[in-house]
Computed example of a mutant assay.
Amino acid sequence: MAILDLHRLHVLREVGRTGSLTSAAAALSFTTSAVSQQIAKLEQEMGVLLVERHPRGGGIDRSRARPPALRRRDRQDS
Rank of each mutant, 00 (worst) to 15 (best):
P68S: 13
L70R: 10
F30G: 00
L49F: 00
L9Y: 01
G59Q: 05
A27W: 06
A2Q: 11
L42H: 03
H7G: 11
Q38G: 05
A24G: 04
T32N: 07
D5R: 05
K41A: 13
A26K: 14
A2L: 10
Q38C: 09
G19R: 06
A65I: 06
S36Y: 01
A25P: 04
E45Q: 15
A69M: 09
E43K: 08
Q76K: 11
Q76S: 11
A26S: 13
Q44G: 04
R8D: 11
M1Y: 02
T18Y: 07
R64G: 15
H7W: 07
R53C: 02
I3D: 11
R64H: 14
F30Y: 14
E43T: 09
S29R: 13
Q38V: 00
A69L: 14
Q37W: 07
T32P: 08
G47E: 07
G47W: 07
S29Y: 05
A69E: 13
S29M: 08
S63Q: 10
G58Y: 04
F30R: 07
L28P: 02
S33Y: 05
R75P: 00
S78M: 11
G19Q: 04
T18H: 10
A2D: 06
R75F: 12
R62Q: 10
A24I: 09
S23G: 15
L4M: 12
L28D: 02
L28S: 03
V35S: 03
Q76I: 12
R64D: 04
I3R: 11
A34Y: 11
M1S: 14
G19N: 04
T32S: 12
S33R: 14
S20D: 05
G19I: 05
S36V: 01
V15L: 04
I3T: 13
Q76M: 12
L49Y: 01
G59D: 03
R73A: 15
R53T: 03
R8M: 08
E45A: 15
F30I: 01
G58E: 03
L42K: 03
I60W: 02
H7R: 14
D74A: 14
Q38Y: 09
P55G: 05
G16W: 03
V48S: 11
I3F: 08
R62L: 15
P67H: 11
G57I: 07
S20N: 04
